[in-house]
Amino acid sequence: MIFIGVIVLLAAVDLFIKSSIEEQEESQFPKELKGTNGKILLYKNHNPGFSFGFLKDRPEVVQMIPLIVATFIGGMLGGLLKTKGRIADKFALAIVLGGAVSNLYDRLFRHYVVDYFSLQFGKLKKVVFNLGDIFIFLGAAIYLIVELIRTIRDR
C-alpha cells in the first residue's frame, strides 16, 4: 500500500505545482525561483508533444503511447506487489508512475504537459521540465542501478 501512496503523493505534488503555475499570468515568466541565486528559473511552458515538442502534431499518439507505457509499468508494479522483497524495484517503479501519472493527466485533460523549471547549468539552460519528468528519470535510474547490481552480484 505504501507504493500506491508514493505514486499518489508524487503525482499530487507535481499537479499542485502545475496548477499554481497555470494560475499565474504568462507575463510573469520566466522568473527566478526564490532562494536559488538564479540557478533555477521558473517558466510557464505548454508542451503538446513529447520532449522538445516531438510529435506535437499527433496528439492521439502523444496520448496513447504514455498511457500504454504507464499501464505496462503499473502492471509490472502490480506483479511485484504480489511478491516478497524487491523493495527497491517496487519503490523505483512507484516513483516512475508518480511522474507518469502527473504527465499523463496533463496529456489527457489539458492536452499539453505543463513544464515549469529550468536548471541554469550548461546545456540544461535550454531545457524546461517538471517534477514529473524528474520522477520518471529518477525512478528509471534507481531501477537500472538495482538491476545492474543484481546482475553483477549473480555472476
Rank of each mutant, 00 (worst) to 15 (best):
A94F: 01
L97D: 10
T151R: 14
F52E: 11
F16V: 12
P66L: 11
H111V: 06
L42T: 05
G79H: 13
L33H: 07
F54A: 15
G132V: 03
L9D: 07
V8I: 04
F16N: 12
I136R: 01
Q63C: 09
K125E: 11
G49T: 02
N37T: 05
F16C: 12
G35S: 07
P59Y: 12
N45M: 15
A12Q: 05
R150E: 13
I40C: 08
S19A: 15
K31S: 02
L119K: 07
I87M: 11
K82A: 14
Y105H: 14
N47R: 00
I95L: 01
L119T: 06
Q120R: 15
G74N: 05
R110H: 14
F121P: 04
G38V: 05
S102R: 03
F109Q: 09
S51M: 09
Q28D: 11
A88G: 06
G49V: 00
H46D: 08
E25H: 09
R150S: 15
G99V: 00
R86Y: 12
D154R: 15
K56V: 01
L33E: 14
R150L: 11
I65G: 10
I4V: 02
V8K: 04
F91N: 02
E60L: 12
F129V: 09
E147Y: 08
T36P: 09
E60A: 11
L108G: 11
T151E: 13
L33P: 08
S102L: 01
A11M: 04
V96N: 05
F91I: 00
R107E: 11
N45E: 15
S19R: 15
F16G: 13
F117K: 03
D106K: 13
K39W: 11
G78C: 10
S19C: 05
F52K: 14
A94R: 01
E32W: 04
M76G: 15
A70H: 03
L33N: 09
R155N: 12
L33Q: 11
